[in-house]
Structures are given as structure tokens and as C-alpha cells.
């Protein structure tokens, strides 16, 4: 790891000021992606602004209509939260599928979606539920947040403060784990919301994406067979030693079927 300056932020305003002042600074959430990337010298920020001490970024609130999860809330807090399990059990399930127990004790929601790894789990929930990402500057709809490979709508000096998930009628998430890393080879989040059905796919492409054809079919009949014959094109999907683009495209249909089944309980 290259040397850097370390700063512990006391508040969101404090962190935002430090990040705005230094374009080569990085926000450190749980560090489960950033520290690993810095050790491999894939990331070499000149300064690190640690959000670990910012209490206002942690916590889970539910009012029955929306579930608001603070950016620095650890995955394990989401897994074991009664509020989450009651409002959106699929979200608690998804959080429990991330990494391993030790990683879940450190990793955070905000860190995961700001990083936007193409195989991360949380982007599928944020896009699949049509959540709203709240930052220190504005509110960003999930459909506008994820821009591409490791790319989001966040501007320099902009910090995620929380994510507001609308509570769906029912939802399910199923992923096919890459057997070594446990990242999603393909993961599909399906949500039957008050304003239609949403299907979000992670792991398959360079960035999480929706499948409108499946959404339409599920809106007329919310059942696994509705998506069973919908194939997505493999053009532009990820291809590596673990799985070809064709294989991933096939998995999208299989995982979508299972996710609908999971949503039906």
C-alpha cells in the first residue's frame, strides 16, 4: 500500500469539506473493497477520510412505507435488523449473502454502492426496489445513480448519507455465487412494488441493469413461468474464466425465475 494522509471525519460536513479540498482524497467507509484495492495498488489515494466515526450516517429507520438505511450501516446490522426483516425480508437476505460474516461486520451499504462493483449485491436491491440515494447535496433516483463499470452519479466531494427503500408488496433476490469469491456471477432482484414490477440484474454486465421485458411479463402475471422463456442477449455481458457471456445470459433467466419464486415465498 502506498503512503497516504489519514483523517477521521467528525461529521458529514467535515468529511465533505475534506474531500472537496483534496481531489485525490477518498472516503473510507468499511474499507472492505477500498483497503483491498489499496493493498493491490489498484487504488492509491493521497488521503483517506475515514467515515467510521460519523454517527449520523448509521442506523435503520422504518415508517412502514419506506425503509431508510444510513450509508455507514454495516451489512450485518441489516441482516439482523427486525425492521428490515419485517419490511423487506429480501433485503436482509441479500445483505446476508454478501462476502462472509467478518466482511459483513465491516462492509457498509454506502461503501458498496459508491464503489459500484459490477458483481456487488447491493446495487441489485437499490435498482430493483427503485430506491432513492440521498447524498449531502441531493436525492438521486436509483435509475440515475449507477452509470457504468465502477461509475456512479456521485460528484467529487459528494457523500452518500442514506438510501431510502420503498417497501414493496413482495420481493426476492437469488444469486449464483462465483464459487471462489462469493461475489455474484449473476444475481437477480425482483420486486413487485406499488408502481409495477422491477427486475434488476447484477454480475452479468459491466453495471447493474433492468430487464424491461421481464418486468412487463411479471406485471401481467407474477409467476416464475412468466420469465421462463425470456432470454436476454449476451452481447456486452461479462465474459471471464468463470463464465462466458452466453452462460451469464442463460443464468439471468434461471435466477430471475428463482427470484420470483423466492418473492412468492
Amino acid at each position: 500500500m502506498y503512503a497516504f494522509n489519514y483523517q477521521k471525519a467528525k461529521s458529514v460536513a467535515d468529511a465533505a469539506a475534506a474531500l472537496a479540498k483534496n481531489p485525490d482524497a477518498k472516503a473510507l467507509a468499511g474499507g472492505q473493497s477500498l483497503i483491498a484495492a489499496m493493498k493491490l495498488r489498484l487504488a492509491a489515494p493521497a488521503a483517506v477520510v475515514d467515515l467510521g466515526g460519523v454517527a449520523e450516517l448509521r442506523g435503520i429507520k422504518s415508517d412502514g412505507k419506506n425503509l431508510v438505511v444510513g450509508a455507514m450501516t454495516r451489512h450485518s446490522e441489516v441482516v439482523f435488523s427486525d425492521d428490515v426483516r419485517k419490511a423487506i425480508p429480501a433485503l436482509a437476505h441479500l445483505a446476508g449473502e454478501i462476502g462472509d460474516r467478518m466482511v459483513r461486520n465491516m462492509g457498509t451499504l454506502g461503501g458498496s454502492i459508491a464503489h459500484n462493483d459490477p458483481a456487488a449485491d447491493y446495487p441489485a436491491a437499490v435498482l430493483g426496489l427503485g430506491a432513492t440515494v440521498e447524498t449531502n447535496k441531493r436525492k438521486i433516483a436509483a435509475d440515475d445513480f449507477f452509470k457504468g463499470l465502477y461509475e456512479t452519479a456521485l460528484e467529487p466531494g459528494e457523500l452518500i448519507t442514506s438510501v431510502s427503500f420503498p417497501v414493496p408488496k413482495r420481493a426476492g433476490y437469488v444469486k449464483f455465487k462465483q464459487p471462489a469469491s462469493r461475489f455474484a456471477l449473476v444475481g437477480v432482484f425482483v420486486a413487485d412494488t406499488g408502481s409495477g414490477v422491477r427486475v434488476a440484474v447484477t454480475g452479468a454486465g459491466p453495471c447493474v441493469f433492468r430487464v424491461p421485458e421481464m418486468e412487463k411479463a411479471l406485471a401481467s402475471k407474477f409467476a416464475p413461468e412468466s420469465v421462463a422463456n425470456i432470454r436476454i442477449p449476451d452481447k456486452g455481458l461479462n465474459s471471464d474464466i468463470h463464465a462466458s457471456a452466453e452462460y451469464r445470459a442463460h443464468l439471468v433467466t434461471v435466477m430471475a425465475k428463482r427470484a420470483v419464486q423466492a418473492a412468492l415465498g
Binding site: 489519514y6 477521521k8 473510507l28 474499507g31 472492505q32 483497503i35 483491498a36 483517506v48 475515514d50 467510521g52 467478518m102 466482511v103 461486520n105 465491516m106
Partner: peptide
């Protein structure tokens, strides 16, 4: 937690 994947300062 995994002590190899975090800073002492954390």
C-alpha cells in the same frame, strides 16, 4: 472482523 483488511486507525 478480518484484521488484514482494515487500518489500525479504523
Amino acid at each position: 472482523v478480518k484484521a488484514c483488511n482494515m487500518l489500525a486507525m479504523q
